[in-house]
């Protein structure tokens, strides 16, 4: 899932400074799971915007903001969107981008999108995949070094790893420590000998 975090409301309000008539679009997939764009959050946002003096002309909650079909499909869901001078998308950057591609008014996002991650046992897992387009995660026991190593190193840790923790953040496990542990568990430490070519960007 796409991991995002909510922008401070003051920042959202400031970005909408020039516009009074606002339409809010939520997202019922990742953002809803993260409690950043599901129905309760959309309703809450509408109320906050009204309290701040905005005219919220309406809202919708598409299945996925990143999969909206067309302007017509949005109008069909709620014709009030035609009165909007700006649209606030409570999804990820991708959802905001797709909405922007089908409308003729300015589009803003209420969230900052940070990574492709997961949500397991109520814990948000950041940076699980870099979407590099050539998955070699099996060679690393299911821990992606492109994503989880701060330097994206493919052939082993840097010298900055200390007591199994990352040079960038001593609270975070070194990805190569995780890779070592995983490969040991699955009995494939032999994979560490492989020489990995640079990624093609």
């Amino acid at each position: 899932m796409i991991i995002s975090s909510a922008k401070p409301f003051e920042e959202i309000l400031l970005s909408l400074d020039r516009y009074d008539d606002i339409f809010v679009i939520g997202c019922n997939v990742c953002a809803a799971k993260l409690h950043l764009g599901g129905e309760p959050e959309v309703l809450d946002m509408c109320e906050c915007l009204r309290n701040a003096g905005k005219n919220v002309v309406g809202w919708i909650l598409p299945t996925a903001a990143c999969s909206v079909q067309s302007w017509e499909s949005l109008v069909e869901k709620n014709p009030a969107i035609e009165d909007a001078r700006a649209i606030l998308v409570m999804g990820c950057g991708s959802g905001t981008s797709v909405v922007a591609s089908v409308v003729d008014v300015p589009v803003y996002s209420s969230n900052d999108t940070t990574s492709l991650g997961g949500l397991s046992n109520d814990v948000v897992l950041h940076d699980q995949c870099a979407m590099c387009g050539k998955c070699i995660i099996a060679d690393f026991g299911g821990v992606c070094p492109t994503t989880q190593c701060a330097k994206g190193l493919l052939n082993g840790p840097c010298g900055g790893s200390m007591n199994g923790r990352c040079e960038v953040d001593r609270e975070t496990d070194c990805a190569w420590e995780l890779i070592y542990k995983r490969l040991k568990i699955i009995g494939r430490l032999d994979l560490l000998d492989e020489l990995h070519e640079p990624k093609e960007h």
Binding site: A150, L153, N155, C158, V168
Partner: peptide, 24 residues
Amino acid sequence: MSGDHTTNGDHPGAKPVYDLDSIQ
């Protein structure tokens, strides 16, 4: 060498490159 990460230096906002690792 890999090189210390940008976040530990005096331009912490710089884009770290690491296009190639030291082996590559």
